[in-house]
């Protein structure tokens, strides 16, 4: 593996390798010395052309715990805001000797463009591109689900997951559908028809428009953020109506089966898709997802960067 662009590039064995590696690396985060020498002398660039808190600091913490040097590069305050192209940015990074670029970009496919180009030779890690994919988030979600509900199995066979909310704009949902079904879980998407993408009926998922009928039948309820910044049209009449039909509130929490968990990739719109009392409840693993994110991203960096360098051009 050279790049991590999309979950669809991963085999089941590769996905499990990353999750298993993360299990061992999680110990580092618990240890007295939170640092390993593994990537000493390697340079990782965080190229964030779109806002992010969690993902950027998570990748930064992961790289630093593996002793890599980290250069943070955000579009605001860089030459990108003066109109520099992705190509010129990539050439600059290559000239600085970046071994890997963690890229977040508003345009779907930007990481793929970077990986397929000759502009730079390092690994490309997709940290979220437009409405396409967010593979590291899906891996950390699968890691969290496996930890709570995996019963010691390497995969997620038999686990039932509902992904609720703005699927249309959600790269998290796309990556999670691919990864969770790859690992054998069954996935139900719950959303108003306006927030489901065209062609969703060809996805390997069940679809429901009624949260109340689904919520008691699943082990995991994954809430998605309503992405108001990507909404130029009217997708639902108003926030109160959305919240009433598709929000996770205390009454719906009571309908959930025992041992089931509530997830959210963050940042949350408290009071819109998820009620504050649910986000802070005992079923919620939202804060744990963030902690697991560091271990999983360490595993991704390890798997992509620690072994023998691959020939340029190979995947």
């Amino acid at each position: 593996m050279r790049h991590l662009l999309s979950i669809s590039d991963l085999s089941k064995a590769q996905a499990i390798l990353i999750l298993d590696t993360a299990v061992e690396l999680a110990r580092v985060s618990d240890g007295a010395v939170k640092k390993l020498p593994t990537l000493r002398g390697r340079t990782i660039v965080n190229l964030f052309a779109e806002d992010s808190t969690r993902t950027r600091i998570s990748f930064e913490a992961a790289a630093k715990r593996l002793s890599a040097d980290v250069i943070n590069f955000s579009a605001k305050g860089s030459s990108v805001s003066k109109g520099e192209s992705l190509k010129d940015t990539a050439l600059t990074l290559q000239a600085m000797g970046a071994d890997a670029v963690v890229i977040r970009h508003g345009a779907s496919g930007a990481p793929q463009r970077l990986a397929d180009s000759e502009w730079m030779l390092g690994s490309v890690i997709n940290a979220g591109d437009g409405t396409h994919e967010h593979p590291s988030q899906a891996l950390l979600d699968a890691f969290t689900i496996r930890k709570h509900l995996g019963k010691g199995a390497p995969d997620l066979v038999g686990v039932r997951v509902a992904i609720v909310g703005d699927v249309l704009h959600s790269r998290v949902a796309r990556s999670n559908v691919l990864l969770l079904t790859l690992l054998g879980a069954s996935v139900t998407l719950v959303a108003p028809p306006t927030l489901l993408p065209v062609g969703v009926e060809s996805w390997p998922v069940k679809i429901s428009y009624d949260l109340d009928s689904v919520i008691g039948t699943v082990d995991v309820v994954m809430m998605l953020r309503v992405q108001q910044e990507r909404m130029s049209d009217l997708f639902f009449p108003n926030a109160r109506e959305y919240s009433r039909y598709f929000g996770l509130n205390a009454d719906r929490l009571k309908l959930m089966s025992p041992d089931s968990i509530v997830m959210h990739p963050g940042p949350m719109n408290r009071g819109l898709e998820i009620a504050a009392e649910v986000a802070d409840s005992a079923r919620s693993v939202i804060v744990e997802q963030v902690a697991n994110g560091v271990s999983v991203r360490m595993a991704i960096l390890y798997v992509l960067l620690a072994g023998q360098p691959l020939e340029a051009g190979s995947k």
Partner: peptide, 12 residues
């Protein structure tokens, strides 16, 4: 590490 294919991490 850089001279061999990827080694899986074993438990501690």
């Amino acid at each position: 590490l850089r001279m061999r294919p990827l080694r899986p991490i074993m438990p501690t």
